[in-house]
Design a protein around this nucleic acid. Structure first.
Length: 128
DNA sequence: AGTCTGACGGTAT
DNA sequence: AATACCGCCAGAC
């Protein structure tokens, strides 16, 4: 399920299969977010070729709630660095998960977002 | 089958 | 600066 250097393939997969692969693609990208870094729903959507489907990224992560997984969903925040998905976390709070990785969070908002922001559009650039 | 609802984001007002 | 609007589309009814 997880992909590393084959992300370009992911794009092709998306083009070929427009049914329900979107969630899987989201999970693949989320799995690649480095510890201590965060990205946004919109950035993931854009990387998957669905720039205007950021809401679906959140929806995809929401679907994780009822199943076991090892995805760092807490590393996905909105474009301003606000922990908008906080309410959906069970067990360890999203904020705490981030703190454990050294990410500073104050009042639901990530501090110094720019310095830890991880953009799949750059990190997983197809040009590389 | 039709409607509604979002872990969003951009564009307009 | 703040608010409003709406496209996106899979699922739940």
């Amino acid at each position: 399920m997880f992909v590393t250097k084959t992300m370009p393939k992911v794009k092709r997969l998306h083009e070929n299969d427009k049914t329900n692969s979107f969630f899987e693609l989201v999970y693949q990208v989320v799995a690649l977010i480095p510890e201590g870094r965060v990205t946004s729903y919109g950035a993931i959507a854009k990387y998957l070729g669905a720039a205007r489907s950021s809401r679906m990224v959140g929806w995809a992560l929401n679907a994780l709630n009822n199943s076991r997984h090892d995805l760092p969903a807490h590393r996905v925040v909105n474009r301003k660095g606000i922990l908008t998905g906080k309410a959906h976390f069970r067990g360890i709070p999203m904020e705490e998960l981030l703190m454990q990785e050294g990410v500073k969070v104050v009042d639901n908002e990530i501090q110094q977002l720019e310095s830890i922001y991880w953009d799949p559009n750059e990190a997983l650039s197809l040009d590389k």
